[in-house]
């Protein structure tokens, strides 16, 4: 067994142990912190599997943004009545355990019973890359081969924001999400929120741009841009725009709208919904991705900011 093998086994054991610890943690906040660490370790696993695109997404979305959402939810629930602390009735607990074991067993059986070598579409995905003009097969899969799924994912993101906003009390509808700005922002956090965004914006746009040929893309780049907006809002340097803002709403829907418009244009020009005319596939893909990045960068902070809690300014 080589050193690298031993390290891989150690990493896998660490991921499993952390997963078990996160499930077993009694306090919501501790479980959320465990989940963030678990996501970061998992992204190392993806790097070891040579899936750098997935690793970036796991670190940015799975661990980062989801972690922020979970930690905020845990902090909000801290003062709430612990209605869920009552243990379930024993038969129900037993049933839940059996169900979980069945799902885990089915997943394990699927993975273990896979033929070796596993069936793969990777050669076709790489073989058709020239028709898209892209160098990164993952981006080609996302925006070209299965463009329909990716477009619907963006629609789901916008729907999630609509869902969060619909929790607003009637009096606050049209106001800004989240709590009002503190009079004096915390000094250390405010400093970070001033130093980090210039760097983060450059890195986010870079990751979106290189996504055409190297690991990266709209989702990862957009998540970094979103994080920059989140940190300035958390530090109290800016306030979220009111949900009635037309500009905000335009940015939120721009990604799916541009995607849909180009997809419909493909029916006329290229002979199929979401088909790109040959020769101009790459510029069109980058055009769509730019608006998707914008949508993601606006959607994720709006999900974290939560429903409007302030009455609209007259």
């Amino acid at each position: 067994m080589t050193v690298v093998n031993a390290l891989d086994i150690g990493l896998a054991a660490l991921v499993l142990a952390l997963a078990a610890w996160t499930v077993a943690a009694r306090e919501a906040f501790a479980a959320a912190v465990g989940y963030v660490a678990y996501g970061l370790l998992l992204s190392l696993v993806w790097v070891r599997l040579f899936a750098v695109d997935v690793a970036l997404t796991e670190a940015a979305i799975g661990s980062g943004v989801t972690g922020v959402l979970l930690i905020r939810a845990a902090a909000r629930l801290r003062g709430a009545t612990p209605a869920l602390d009552e243990p379930l009735a024993p038969p129900l607990r037993f049933l839940a355990g059996v169900l979980c074991a069945m799902v885990a067993g089915a997943l394990a059986a699927t993975v273990l019973l896979m033929p070796d070598p596993a069936p793969t579409l990777a050669p076709q995905a790489v073989g058709n890359l020239p028709s898209t003009g892209l160098g990164n097969a993952v981006t080609a899969v996302l925006i070209s081969y299965r463009a329909f799924d990716t477009m619907l994912e963006k629609v789901v993101l916008v729907l999630a924001v609509v869902g969060v906003w619909s929790l607003a009390p009637d009096a606050c509808w049209g106001g800004s999400p989240g709590a009002p700005r503190p009079a004096r922002p915390e000094a250390a956090l405010a400093f970070l929120a001033q130093v980090l965004p210039p760097l983060g914006i450059v890195v986010g746009i870079h990751i979106f741009w290189v996504g055409a040929d190297e690991p990266g893309g709209a989702f990862q780049g957009g998540a970094i841009l979103a994080a920059m907006w989140m940190i300035t809002m958390m530090a109290g340097l800016t306030e979220a725009p009111p949900v009635s803002s037309t500009r905000l709403r335009l940015v939120l829907v721009s990604g799916p709208a541009v995607f849909l418009a180009i997809g419909l244009a493909g029916v006329v020009i290229a002979g199929g919904f979401l088909a790109y005319p040959s020769g101009s596939a790459k510029p069109l893909i980058l055009f769509i991705e730019a608006f998707m990045t914008l949508t993601i960068a606006a959607t994720l902070p709006m999900l974290v900011a939560g429903p409007p809690e302030q009455p609209p300014q007259p």
Binding site: E186, A187, A188, L189, F191, L192, V195, L196
Partner: peptide, 10 residues
């Protein structure tokens, strides 16, 4: 460095 110093302060 920047992130850890800020988090330590917080």
């Amino acid at each position: 460095l920047l992130a850890s110093a800020t988090v330590a302060q917080l």
